[in-house]
Amino acid sequence: MQSRTGARWEEFLGRLDRRLVSLGLVLFTLPPLVGKWVLPLTASSPSRALQAAVEAIPPEKLVFISSDWDAGTQAESRPQLTAIVRHLLKQKRKFVLFSVNSPTGPQIAQTTVEKAIKEEDLTEEQWKYGRDWANLGYKVANTPWIRTLSRSIQEAMKEDWQNTPISELEILKGVDRWGPDGQVAMLIDVTGSATIEYWYAYLTPTKVKLGLACTGVMAPEQYPYLDSGQLSGMLTGMKGAAEYFELIGAPSPELRVTMAGQSFAHLYIVLLILLGNVPIFLGWWQRRQR
């Protein structure tokens, strides 16, 4: 039976205005963001594994990036894509973007990549569209098409996002196969949904390396694939992006500050869970007293 204090507490929580709780979240996350607090950050093993996998790609081979996110998950996915692209630029690895999940994804990815090229102090001529990188736009993800893509890139990809035939894109000349025997050594899925499932099912047989940059909530489901080696490495949410920036030697102070804000948001949620359980703790304590 619940104690009187516990019942009062329950009543108090029930009456608590939800707007106050939301305001609490804002107030809790504001100090680290305004004060630009920076907390310690150690790279996790999945992030290190992704970095190692990218650096092991032979220089003549391409990397495909499936950019399957839109504005909804941009807080996590944009820094992830930026970090990965900057690493590829540092390594002078050519890459090709496409999207199978979000029709607006290619445009957002385009601006993100253009910004990353600028951040690496490269001009448009030094890292030229069509020669060093390309954006093949949005393709509707259905199983027959993905099976075609797994067999032949030329068969499945006809044009880039601005309708330029891929035959006119120098980077894609002769590029048709995935894996060690093909021209594409790795596919990295930067995603806010479960698109990686397609690549597990249809690209794993080609032995192409798979990398993943997913939102925080998606990560726990992917650990079995890291164990099995189907996934070469993984970035988890904003933390994964911040770790990757550190690993590639291009730390992002802005992201570190945002991470401190996220830390305090997590702390606030933990405190709220404890607050909600006060009546139960009180009940236990009173039972033990008796």
Binding site: L39, P40, K239, M259, A260, S263, L267, I273
Partner: peptide
Amino acid sequence: LMITAVIVMLGQVPLGQF
């Protein structure tokens, strides 16, 4: 479940490391 959730929630952000 709650103890695990708290560990993961704090472990996933730099505050946990701090």
